[in-house]
């Protein structure tokens, strides 16, 4: 591991000017530093900034401090009651040890688990060494993207929380060198295109302060359905975040986003449109699942995810619908 300096921040205002790399829980960054994939010369620990770890409702908005721990949000009773898709996306991610360490802001910025990216210089990787090529395109692509890939990169965005937030139309409050701004979570991650090393639209030194989620009529009837190789503590083979607004068996509005199959959190309006205004049954839910994967481009080893994902979306829709009947 390369040498670096380590400093603790005392206020958010002090972060943008330092030029240092921000570290929060460190579960991604320190991990990748051990692999010599991340090589920052200076680290600024932001977890020492007070006042950014709260979780609160402000009217119809749920506000998460960026430094709240995953485990706190995963078990927050009001989050569970009013927007289970958010709590479930966190509870089904990582292990309790890592959820105690990782923050809600940092979680959004976790990097891909593509083995060709993580396993270093033996393999070409445009994300790790721009211009070197992509070993996954001709390699073992069982864990790679069916949606949003490019000739340069088909690495999957591995997170769950961001997928749930995209389904819920969440917004980020940011503080950067050019001041404060807000950004939809859906606009945070870039498609890989020909520059897969640029994963987000954040500027250097820009920090996520808060995550705001509108929770109105849509939220209670929601779920995060995650299919894994083992039952717990694994990244998604495919996942579906679904939230419904229903009245007497008819879908007023549907939100669907996919995880584990795309290069960024993947909202599927074409699947949402299948459900809108129609009486829900299992056949319609399957139709939405098929629409969600209509644009999928499977590689050699990941074609099974089209079938698996279609069923996962349908199951998630039915689970969310069941919750709309709760008082």
């Amino acid at each position: 591991m390369q040498r670096f300096t380590y400093t603790q921040a005392r206020s958010a205002e002090a972060v943008p000017g330092t030029g240092a790399r921000i570290i929060a829980g460190g579960t991604t960054l320190y991990d990748l530093m051990k692999l010599d994939i991340e090589t920052p010369a200076a680290l600024l620990d932001v977890t020492t900034i007070p006042g950014l770890d709260g979780i609160a409702f402000a009217g119809d908005e749920l506000v998460f401090g960026a430094l709240a721990r995953m485990s706190d949000a995963a078990e927050h009773p009001e989050v569970l009651r009013r927007c289970p898709v958010l709590a479930e996306s966190l509870a089904k991610a990582a292990s309790q040890q890592l959820r105690n360490m990782a923050t809600l802001g940092g979680n959004l910025l976790q990097r891909t688990r593509c083995p060709y990216f993580r396993n270093g210089a033996h393999y070409p990787c445009n994300k790790r060494a721009p211009g070197s090529g992509c070993a996954a395109l001709e390699g073992l692509d069982r864990g790679h993207a069916l949606l949003g890939g490019s000739e340069a990169c088909i690495a999957v965005y591995p997170g769950d929380w961001a997928v749930a937030l995209v389904a819920m139309d969440a917004t980020l409050d940011l503080l950067g060198p050019r001041g404060a701004r807000s950004l939809k979570v859906a606009a945070l991650h870039r498609l890989p295109g020909d520059a897969p090393q640029q994963e987000t639209v954040l500027e250097p030194g820009e920090m996520i302060l808060r995550i705001r989620v509108p929770v109105g009529p849509i939220g209670r009837a929601s779920t995060y359905h995650k299919i894994r190789d083992r039952e717990s503590y694994a990244f998604a083979l495919v996942s579906a975040a679904v939230a419904l607004d229903m009245e007497q068996g008819v879908v007023r509005e549907a939100r669907i986003a996919l995880g584990g199959v795309a290069t960024r959190p993947w909202r599927v309006p074409e699947a949402e449109a299948v459900l809108a205004g129609r009486r829900l049954d299992r056949a319609l839910a399957l139709e939405a699942g098929r629409a969600a994967f209509a644009a999928a481009r499977p590689g050699r080893h990941n074609g099974f995810k089209v079938v698996l994902g279609t069923e996962a979306v349908a199951d998630a829709v039915m689970i969310a619908a069941e919750r709309s009947q709760r008082p």
Partner: peptide, 16 residues
């Protein structure tokens, strides 16, 4: 346990 919570000490910077 760090401040009473279980953590993975291998991924925790000692500085933290």
């Amino acid at each position: 346990h760090l401040d009473g919570r279980r953590v993975a000490s291998c991924l925790t910077l000692a500085a933290k």
